[in-house]
């Protein structure tokens, strides 16, 4: 697969994946661009990989995971301030409740968020999640279960009590 073919076929999917990881279109754009420039520079290596798409996804994920270690994304804020809640209204309230999940996602450690995105957005099996995150299968499972527990307690409580009505 050539670089141009890859861009043609996979860029849209990569863009959505970055959106789910970062929760913010601008950061997602930075992340995808940075990843693709790096992939372009070493395209020999990428295209020689068993699964180029997986390889690039892993590059992107690594960039995302490493940003707190003083990397290029340092300046970017990944956790948006919680939005002001809309005025109570049955329909609006329901979608606001569901957005609690999105807001709660932003509070997860990055490994956990990436694991959850790979599982529930991309529907990947544990083995692939572990490969992309560069960790063991049991670590990947533990990321997911800890993430779910956090999400339940953050979003779930508010849901079950009907929010702050």
């Amino acid at each position: 697969m050539t670089y141009d073919e890859f861009v043609e076929d996979r860029l849209a999917a990569l863009s959505r994946y970055a959106m789910m990881l970062t929760g913010d279109p601008h950061t997602a754009q930075d992340l995808v661009q940075e990843t693709m420039v790096r992939a372009h520079e070493k395209w020999h290596q990428v295209s020689a990989a068993y699964a180029p798409e997986q390889y690039v996804k892993r590059m992107l994920t690594n960039l995302f995971l490493e940003w707190h270690r003083g990397s290029w994304l340092k300046r970017v804020r990944l956790r948006p301030e919680p939005q002001e809640r809309p005025a109570p209204h049955d329909h609006a309230q329901r979608s606001a409740d569901r957005d609690e999940v999105w807001q709660a996602l932003a509070t997860l450690p990055r490994q956990q968020r990436a694991a959850v995105v790979l599982r529930y957005y991309e529907d990947r099996p544990d083995q692939e999640i572990a490969e992309i995150l560069g960790c063991s299968v049991s670590a990947a499972r533990s990321y997911i279960s800890r993430a779910l527990a956090t999400l339940r307690s953050r979003a779930g409580t508010q849901l079950s009590t009907g929010g702050r009505r």
Partner: peptide, 19 residues
């Protein structure tokens, strides 16, 4: 919570950066 997650992801798909 899994179902809520899937719905939340689906809801934000459209915000992904323009290709």
């Amino acid at each position: 919570i899994e179902q809520q997650l899937r719905e939340s992801f689906a809801r934000h798909e459209g915000e992904a950066p323009n290709v």
